[in-house]
Design a protein around this nucleic acid. Structure first.
Length: 804
RNA sequence: GCGGGUAUGGCGGAACUGGCAGACGCACAAGAUUUAGGUUCUUGCGGAGUACUCCGUGCAGGUUCAAGUCCUGUUACCCGCACCA
């Protein structure tokens, strides 16, 4: 009887759906387990075989946890706002709401054909007003707590999307999404003060179980540095404050550099003798995009400010001030003290402009290159600091500056506030009105959701205003505070908004009173295991941690961190080893695989393809191996015999497999878990029979990977009421994982001479005796004297010898 | 340039705290059953030369009785950041 997946798989999917077996219960008597995947963006292309990799992986975890008695929540939803949908809508003149609906229907059907145990009763959709009501509600809370503010700023403007992008969305000077050029534009934007949470976003990484590379990347992105702010007097009487991490080198500061945008330049305009040159330089810098600025990084440029000089606070020497675009207005104070002897950029600049280089840390040749090593140097030419180490000098000089009132210790971050406005249609409206009298006022919470109005044209405007700006009826409103005339905000939120809190909504998705009930939040928080892509480490993952911490601070959520554990999957590449994409023509559609081989085979192959954390190329040929395995399992029924206990000849093989499969699933080593099951089936077929208990256990072990066929085999052979219905994950006995005899290796001088079987409890002396008695070993010992005998229990014997 | 990562057969990949390199699978080859085979089963399968041996985990050194694993240097590729003071 050949296995027919086309009959079996839909049958079980129907049963699961009818019985609602994957609906998580809010009844808290069982221990909960909350598994989460990053909810998909329902694009028009449908799924490719890369999508199901994480879904299948956590499905395997979720199914195993259910068998272990956990109350499992494994939800899914749709991150459906966003540009591709809007662009598609514009091009084809279909409302984005309809496009989204169609795309979701297609995604849903595809995902359901894979038999993933999602709780579909908790499906969320970020574009649903009942959902984005709470996204808007969170924004209003952020606003009320002064974490949302409006700011005139230089923004990244995508010339093709006609939209502002967050710094995180600009890659190599081009738009992350469409690849078009990004230029600077000054616009008034909503901002979120993520910088206020910078310290906690770093420190609380200690509370969570994330891969080290994820933690490192987030820390790097936030970029905390500890240093000092130092005040330099200038000949105008104005104080010029700089930020430095090397206050120890203060005696070596021979000039200063301020960024072209620094506000003091305007203030000094009438004192500066070369204002024309300065203005020309400022204009040139403004024209450059970030990309161009870094492109020309090799050659330092700048202009000296003629007419104003600064005074070094430690020795009262006058030093010149320059403007240069290698100093960024957005970091620190937008001004630096330059120590060419000990900073590579300052050194390059000093060489070009022929400025003095004074060595203050001994250890290198500062005329040849900057000496930047902090660990070994000793202070010189530094008055009170002479003879100290760099670290000691930092402490002493900051103390001195603080006492003198000329500076203080200071922590800085690379992280910048989050640009939260988008001038597009297909996003959550920002629930704020502007009143000439009261300023920016949030709409009353009872009026949420503030729905997106139906517009005729959602084309972005060339002026950079949102398409909503043309909706005069919608825009004109009254001020919630004073009742006077007011205008609605026309910008919408970025796609990251809805995805920053969706995991909370799953806990209580139909609640109309709150984003989720206290009870649900207390029971389900935090997410126990969150899997997602590395590409979201500094965007979504950081943003959602920020929102969560804010919600924690205002008492909405019970835990300081949203996700207890995070793992990351590698990408599935095309057969040619390149990233799967339509333009490369290497996209594999899961529908075809499911049709030809079945969902179980598809799932098995997705998990067997390689190390889950690494990228792996798809191979149409390799899938067959997984289908064969499925069939070999099916054919076990042909050699089924009675028996209600594992037979002795298979005992250790089974116990080892139970341990291995269980451990490997927890450690995201799905590929080796499957390899262990394949090895076990080889052991079983060598014995030429399987008894009912053995088949029952094998079916349970395989069930998380291949849920359909295992239920079918379980049912046909009446191994029980059903795996999902009553089976429990099998236990292993450590003592039964051992074979009675083990193979050890006998080496002479590290070369293998023989492989020997010894009892599992053999002593070192036993092992040595057996090794020495071996013919091959004896031959190798002939004419030799033994210098050393190394015995590693259960592993090997190595005899170190030399000629007599 | 900085930070993180990777490198193992024809291919995907195994290898716990240093202890039999190549588990498991694909592909391939031979045989059996079929003989319509994308069927199933058995066997083989890192390289070089006759059983025996030697060489093999990007490259060059080192530590060790013993190195894919540890140390030093180096190359290539991938990811993230990019003048962060």
């Amino acid at each position: 009887m050949k296995y027919n997946h086309k009959a079996v798989e839909p049958k079980w999917q129907q049963i699961w759906e009818d019985k609602g077996v994957f609906h998580a219960s809010d009844d808290s008597s069982k221990e909960k387990f909350y598994a989460l995947i990053e909810f998909p963006y329902p694009s028009g292309q449908g799924l490719h075989v890369g999508h199901p990799r994480p879904y299948t992986a956590l499905d395997t975890v979720a199914r195993k946890k259910r068998l272990q008695g956990f109350n499992v929540l494994y939800p899914i939803g749709w991150d459906a706002f966003g540009l591709p949908t809007e662009n598609y809508a514009i091009k084809n003149h279909i409302h984005p709401e309809i496009v989204t609906k169609n795309n979701i229907a297609r995604f849903k059907k595809q995902i359901q054909s894979l038999g993933i145990s999602f709780d579909w009763s908790r499906e969320v959709n970020t574009t649903d007003p009942e959902y984005y009501k709470w996204t808007q509600w969170i924004f209003i809370q952020l606003f009320k707590h002064n974490l949302a503010y409006k700011k005139e700023m230089n923004v990244n403007w995508c010339t093709s999307c006609k939209c502002v992008l967050a710094n995180e969305e600009v890659v190599n000077g081009v738009c992350e999404r469409c690849g078009s050029e990004v230029v600077h534009k000054v616009k008034s934007q909503w901002m979120l003060k993520i910088t206020e949470y910078a310290d906690r976003l770093i420190n609380d990484l200690d509370l969570v179980n994330y891969p080290e590379r994820v933690k490192a990347q987030q820390k790097n992105w936030i970029g905390r540095s500890t240093g000092a702010e130092v005040d330099f007097q200038t000949t105008t009487g104005d104080v010029l404050t700089v930020y430095t991490t090397r206050a120890d080198t203060l005696y070596g500061a021979t000039y200063m550099v301020i960024s072209p945008e620094h506000p003091l330049i305007e203030k000094w305009a009438d004192k500066l003798q070369n204002m024309d040159d300065i203005r020309a330089y400022q204009a040139a810098a403004a024209r450059k995009s970030d990309f161009e600025r870094t492109e020309v990084a090799k050659d330092k440029t700048g202009v000296k400010l003629e007419g104003v000089r600064a005074v070094n606070p430690v020795n009262n020497k006058e030093i010149p001030i320059f403007i240069s675009d290698y100093v960024l207005v957005s970091y620190g104070t937008g001004a630096i003290m330059a120590v060419p002897a000990h900073d590579t950029r300052d050194w390059e600049f000093a060489k070009k402009f022929d400025l003095p280089i004074i060595e203050v840390v001994k250890g290198g040749n500062v005329q040849e290159e900057a000496f930047t090593d902090c660990a070994t140097g000793v202070m010189v030419n530094s008055g009170m600091l002479d003879g100290l180490s760099v670290d000691d000098a930092k402490v002493k000089i900051i103390d001195w500056l603080t006492k003198e009132g000329k500076g203080h210790a200071k922590v800085n971050y690379k992280l910048r506030d989050w640009v939260f406005s988008r001038q597009r249609y297909w996003g959550e409206p920002i629930p704020i009105v502007h009143c000439d009298k009261c300023g920016y006022v949030p709409i009353d919470e009872s009026e949420l959701p503030l729905k997106l109005p139906m517009v005729e044209s959602y084309e972005p405007t060339d002026t950079g205003e949102s398409p909503l700006a043309n909706m005069t009826d919608w825009i004109r409103t009254t001020c919630p505070k004073c009742g006077g005339a007011a205008l609605r905000e026309t910008d919408t939120m970025p796609q990251w908004a809805g995805s920053s809190w969706y995991y909370l909504r799953y806990m209580d998705p139909h609640n109309t009173e709150a984003l989720a009930s206290k009870e649900a939040l207390n029971y389900w928080s935090p997410v126990d295991w969150y899997n997602g892509g590395m590409e979201h480490t500094t965007l979504h993952l950081l943003y959602s941690r920020f929102w969560h911490k804010f919600l924690y601070d205002i008492g909405v959520v019970p835990t300081p961190e949203p996700y207890a554990k995070r793992t990351s999957h590698g990408m599935i590449l095309g057969e040619n080893g390149e990233k799967m994409s339509k333009s490369r023509g290497n996209v594999v559609n899961p529908d075809e695989i499911v049709d030809e081989y079945g969902a179980d085979t598809m799932r098995l192959y997705e998990m067997f393809i390689g190390d889950f954390e690494k990228a792996a190329p798809w191979s149409q040929a390799s899938i067959r191996g997984c289908r064969r395995f499925i069939e070999r399992y099916w054919n076990l029924q042909n050699i089924l015999i009675d028996g209600d206990a594992i037979r002795p000849e298979l005992e250790s093989a089974f116990h080892k497999a139970i341990k291995k499969v269980g451990d490997d699933i927890e450690n995201i080593k799905f590929n080796t878990a499957i390899a262990a099951l394949m090895a076990l089936i080889n052991d079983i077929t060598n014995v030429k029979s399987i008894n009912r208990e053995e088949l029952r256990i094998f079916s349970i072990l395989l069930n998380p990977f291949a849920p359909h066929i295992t239920e079918e085999v379980y049912e046909i052979n009446k191994l029980g009421e059903g795996i999902l219905a009553e089976a429990q994950w099998p236990q292993y006995d450590e003592s039964k994982c051992m074979d009675e005899t083990i193979e050890i290796v006998a080496q002479v001088n590290g070369k293998i001479k023989a492989k020997l079987n010894v009892p599992v409890d053999a002593t070192k002396e036993d092992m040595l005796a057996v090794a020495k008695a071996n013919e091959k070993v004896c031959a190798a010992l002939d004419g030799m004297s033994i210098l050393k005998e190394i015995v590693v229990p259960k592993k090997l014997v190595n005899l170190v010898v030399k000629p007599k």
